[in-house]
Every structure is written in structure tokens, then in C-alpha cells.
């Protein structure tokens, strides 16, 4: 069913992805997002061929102009002859589980460019699942030979912020006239932003917003890293040169300094811990189902027959002990 089990003689899906096959890469991304068994084995084989792509995160409030900015960036990188992958993330409906993924609309002029691969991704709401799917898709895009991978996500939830903080360089997009809102969001954005873009600078109040942001940045300790603030009118392509230069400058600091190494280790650590958490939970739940099951345990806790700490300890003990279960 997967390339890994392809008949002898024909190339495996892994080989096809490495050769840049768009359809096969897209199917592997889908299987990874759907967590189809076997897809991870293919990812393992792609991993050694990755680590070359420059990963840019673009986040910001709904409608702030992220997709329009991504569209401009695609254009600039294509002019430089680079291949570009985009992961465009939109939220799933908590009610139906469905999602409307509309970011492609603003990137349509690149739709048939063979050097551009755009993949829409829904958040799907499972714990830690979003960053796992995003990381996996970035890995596949990297393995295909994309030089730049841009991840667009709405910067509202922790899950989305986690996603962007896995990028090499993170761009936070704001619009004029936020006023007090800036105060509310500053903690989060300053932690992840490497560059701030005040988009829709054709609107009133752009300079004021830039000044507000600059003041906020000044309040940080003297040794805090520099975060450039740029103005843009993405619909007219204005400010994009400065953004591209800002991204390149940030990338140079990553290439040269200990900072790059520190971030690489930090990302690898986050990735490993996320996976351990998710896999341990899955395995604990599976082991539990061999015995009396989750529902039974939950009921005993709810009725105060058992405290949740003892229950969790028992489940973990069973996970690491072969043989009959205690719960």
C-alpha cells in the first residue's frame, strides 16, 4: 500500500519523494497527518536527507495579511531561484471537526509553478498533534529539496505558538491600531518573534503602532536580542524587500553564532519531548485497554475509590512491566 512495500524494481515512495515527486510527497504528508501506520517508517528514512531548508514561521491575528505576505515572499524567493514549500494552517471547527482551508486563495499566482508546493493543514485539535503534523510535513518538504519552507499559522492558541517556535525564524504580523491589545499579546509575541511586521501600513496609525512596539521592546533587559520592526503594505508589495533582507540577516546570525546551535538543540529537545509525551500516552492507553480499560479506571476515580495519582502510577508501572495487569 505504501511505497515501502512497493513491488521489487519500482522505486519506493521514499525514493520518489527524495527525487521531488509532488504527488507522492503530498500523499505521504496526508498519511503522516492521518497517522497511518507505516508512514512514520518512511519519515525515518527521509530524516537523514533533511536539515537543509530554511524554515520561516509567519503568525499573527486572523486577517492581518499573513497569506498576502507569504505570497510576496514566495515571489521573492522564486526570483532568487529557490524552491519554496508552504504549510498553511487554519483551525478545525471544534463542533464538526471539519475545516475551511482558504490560505491558498492569496497565493494562486504560484499555483502551477513547479518550484512552489503549497499544503493546507487543519489544526484538528488533538493535543500536540498539530506541531507533530507540521514538523512531519516540513521534513517531507525539506527532503523533496525545497530551499525555503514557510509555515503560516494564526497566532492565537498555545498549539499554534508551539508550531511557530519550531521555525528557524519567526515573523509576527500585526496591524495598526491595536492599542491596548498590544499589551495583552506582548508577552507571547516577544517570546517567539524574530521580526515584527506592521502590515496594512496604508491604514491610519501605523507609525503609532511601530512606536508602541518600539517602546515595548525598550522595556526589555539591555542584553535582550534585537527584534526589528518593519512596516509593510503587502497588497502592494511594499516593505517586502526589507522583510526579505531582515530574514536573511537573521539567518546569518543563526549560521554564524552559537545562537544557531542553541536553537537547533532547543528544537530537537522540544521535538523529542513532544513525541515521548504523545507516544507514552498512546502506549499507556493501549496497555490499559488490555485490562479493565480506561472507562473502568475513570469511574473508580470519579467515585473516590481511587485517587488519580495512584491510578496514573499503576498505569505507568503496568506499562513498563510485562505480564498481568494490576488495574
Amino acid at each position: 500500500m505504501t511505497g515501502a512495500r512497493a513491488p521489487a524494481g519500482s522505486p519506493s515512495r521514499v525514493e520518489e519523494v527524495l527525487a521531488g515527486d509532488v504527488a507522492q510527497a503530498a500523499r505521504l504528508m496526508r498519511d503522516l497527518d492521518d497517522q497511518i501506520p507505516g508512514a512514520v517508517d518512511e519519515l525515518k528514512r527521509l530524516y537523514p536527507a533533511t536539515g537543509k531548508a530554511f524554515v520561516i514561521g509567519v503568525t499573527g491575528n486572523p486577517g492581518s495579511g499573513k497569506s498576502t505576505i507569504v505570497d510576496c515572499l514566495i515571489g521573492r524567493y522564486r526570483e532568487q531561484g529557490l524552491r519554496v514549500g508552504v504549510v498553511a494552517i487554519d483551525p478545525s471547527s471544534p463542533f464538526s471537526g471539519g475545516a475551511i482551508l482558504g490560505d491558498r486563495i492569496r497565493m494562486q499566482r504560484h499555483a502551477t509553478d513547479p518550484g512552489v508546493f503549497i499544503r493546507s493543514l487543519a489544526t484538528r485539535g488533538h493535543l500536540g498533534g498539530l506541531s507533530r503534523s507540521t514538523q512531519d510535513i516540513i521534513t517531507v518538504m525539506d527532503a523533496m529539496g525545497n530551499d525555503v519552507v514557510i509555515v503560516e499559522t494564526v497566532g492565537v492558541g498555545q498549539d499554534e505558538v508551539d508550531v511557530v517556535s519550531t521555525a528557524h525564524t519567526s515573523v509576527v504580523v500585526l496591524v495598526p491600531g491595536l492599542g491596548d491589545e498590544i499589551q495583552a499579546i506582548k508577552a507571547g509575541i516577544l517570546e517567539i518573534a524574530d521580526l515584527l511586521v506592521v502590515n496594512k501600513a496604508d491604514r491610519e496609525g501605523a507609525d503609532r503602532t511601530v512606536a508602541d512596539l518600539a517602546m515595548m521592546l525598550d522595556l526589555r533587559p539591555a542584553e535582550a536580542r534585537e527584534i526589528p520592526i518593519l512596516k509593510a503594505v503587502a497588497t502592494r508589495g511594499e516593505g517586502i524587500d526589507a522583510l526579505v533582507e531582515g530574514l536573511a540577516a537573521h539567518r546569518r546570525t543563526l549560521d554564524q553564532e552559537a545562537e544557531g546551535r542553541r536553537r537547533r538543540l532547543e528544537r530537537a529537545k522540544t521535538r523529542l519531548k513532544d513525541l515521548l509525551r504523545a507516544m507514552a500516552l498512546d502506549q499507556a492507553l493501549a496497555r490499559l485497554e488490555e485490562g479493565s480499560g480506561l472507562a473502568h479506571l475513570v469511574q473508580r476515580i470519579a467515585e473516590r475509590e481511587l485517587d488519580p495519582y495512584t491510578a496514573a502510577e499503576q498505569v505507568l508501572a503496568d506499562l513498563f512491566t510485562p505480564g498481568p495487569l494490576s488495574t
Binding site: S92, S93, F95, S96, G97, G98, A99, I100, L101, G102, R104, I105, Q108, A111, T112, S120, A122
Partner: peptide, 20 residues
Amino acid sequence: ALVDAGYEVIYTGLHQTPDM
């Protein structure tokens, strides 16, 4: 309606050529 039914819908907007 498709989203409400639980599907993931990739919406590409107006004026699409067949190849797009």
C-alpha cells in the same frame, strides 16, 4: 455545508484555470 459535515475543505477562490 461540507465543513459542517466534518470534511476538510481546501477552498481556492475565484477564477481558477483547470490546471490551477
